[in-house]
């Protein structure tokens, strides 16, 4: 029976790297699979599969996770609470285990109004905290109504946190609740300000759970400004924006973004237990980032 290698990595206290892939809207999954195989396999310890990210309907995370496994990668099954009620969420958790998936990332999920089906209902029977509790309950052999299971699953349970939120205290309280509810590791929203990240890490040290610093590769100065203005909790410092602006060609080819990411990772190594690379289609830069940041 396979066990989570990601968890193993955390237990050994070695620096973990996770990647991410988003399934397509449609049945042509080969492109995302091949890119993951070409650029992430053998480098990332596990690959997240997004779950109808930004409330945009796509091929499912569960199926794509299994397809990644068939290609020899370890998946992290992202689960949002927006699209499934308490019955379907638990059922999919059991299905995931049956398919050999061993890592689950519990998320609340973006509101459906943000995606391409604003007319759909948002379920939210559970939230990120109660989904983690449901995972623990299933692992103990009972569903959330207390009924006994014929065979219990076992996962490495992850959750997310936004270090750059303003105010950050509610984020930290919720993180504490997630730890209490069973979270064994955290992935963060994209972080660029190393000082801010360091302060955050000092505040959450006491929870004693591995934290993976989130990274989104910056594609241009315009993108950085857009993130600053529109995505909550993301702060790209001015000096990085000017770097992207200086050499437009290097920014366009991804070299500047990859360099910024690698610089951050090098510094973050002393502060946290790993990084989570959200490449948004730029997975071909992952090998360069590994090299520049001296990742194993």
């Amino acid at each position: 029976m396979n066990v989570s290698q990601l968890q193993h990595k955390f237990e050994n206290r070695s620096f973990a790297v996770t990647g991410e892939t988003g399934p397509p809207k449609g049945t042509n999954v080969n492109r995302c699979l091949h890119r993951a195989e070409k650029y992430l396999k053998g480098r990332c310890n596990a690959v997240n599969v997004t779950d109808n990210q930004s409330a945009i309907m796509q091929t499912g995370s569960l199926a794509t996770c299994r397809l990644l496994m068939d290609l020899g990668m370890e998946p992290v099954f992202q689960m949002v609470c927006r699209d499934r009620n308490a019955i379907a969420l638990q059922s999919d958790i059991l299905s995931a285990y049956a398919l050999g998936i061993r890592n689950i990332l519990a998320l609340t999920g973006d509101h459906q109004a943000l995606g391409d089906h604003p007319q759909a209902s948002g379920v939210f029977d559970l939230d990120s905290v109660s989904l983690l509790k449901a995972l623990c309950s299933l692992e103990s052999g009972r569903d959330i109504s207390g009924n006994a299971l014929d065979g219990a699953p076992k996962f490495c349970r992850g959750a997310v946190v936004t270090p750059g939120a303003e105010p950050v205290e509610p984020q930290i309280i919720k993180m504490e609740k997630k730890v209490e509810a069973g979270a064994q590791f955290f992935q963060t929203q994209a972080v660029y300000d190393i000082k801010q990240f360091e302060t955050f890490m000092k505040r959450v040290e006491k929870f004693n759970v591995p934290v993976l610093a989130g990274q989104v590769i910056l594609k241009s100065a315009g993108m950085a400004r857009f993130l600053n203005a529109n995505v909550s909790g993301i702060n790209v410092p001015e000096h990085l924006i000017s770097k992207l602006q200086k050499d437009k060609e290097a920014a366009k080819s991804g070299q500047t973004g990859a360099r910024i990411c690698a610089d951050f990772v090098k510094e973050a190594k002393a502060m946290c237990q790993g990084v989570h690379l959200m490449t948004l289609g730029w997975d071909h830069l992952v090998p360069d980032i590994f090299e520049m940041a001296d990742l194993g």
Partner: peptide
Amino acid sequence: CAKSLVNGQCGGTTR
């Protein structure tokens, strides 16, 4: 709360 959450703020609050 747009999602009727009972366990605290989601990650979506704007600046």
